[in-house]
Amino acid sequence: MTFNYIKDLIHAIRSLLKGMKITLKYFFSPKRIITQQYPTMKPVLAEKFRGEVVLIHDEQNEHKCTGCTSCEIACPNGTIKIVTKQEVNEAGKKKKALDVFVYHLELCTMCGLCVEACPTAAIYMKNSYEHSTFDRHTLLRKLNQEGSKLQSGIE
């Protein structure tokens, strides 16, 4: 009994020292430390990271959204609301066009189904991640910029 106890004790101390060796190895080589100090060191997330929905605008302030509401139907929690208006083109024909692209970031689960559903690839998901605010109403976004219009050639 006593012999077993001492045998166990020696075995225990040896196994603890074995573990302690690794702890000390990391303690004396700070180069191996992989933790990041977040607010000062900001990580760069991957291109594909789904952070928030963005409507792509080019230099002429033109987007590709036709207002077809595919994304609105695809969204599982009613994050997107498309408001359309009737526009008259040069030929005098009435046509549906995007008026306001409403996006509730506070409801978004970043599933990416809207981007999948978009037939004209007008939206994509940006890799931004610092969305926290004190007031959730600031997360209600209008995605189309002021005075933007549909790119020519997009039906």
Partner: peptide, 29 residues
């Protein structure tokens, strides 16, 4: 430390680190 390498792979390829929604009926997104 090791798990983060996998979540980085997920982030790069699937677009999320935890809640993926990468698989869609018919294949992957």
């Amino acid at each position: 430390r090791e798990r983060d390498m996998i979540t980085d792979i997920f982030e790069k390829n699937c677009g999320a680190r935890l809640t993926m929604n990468y698989m869609v009926p018919g294949g992957v997104m």
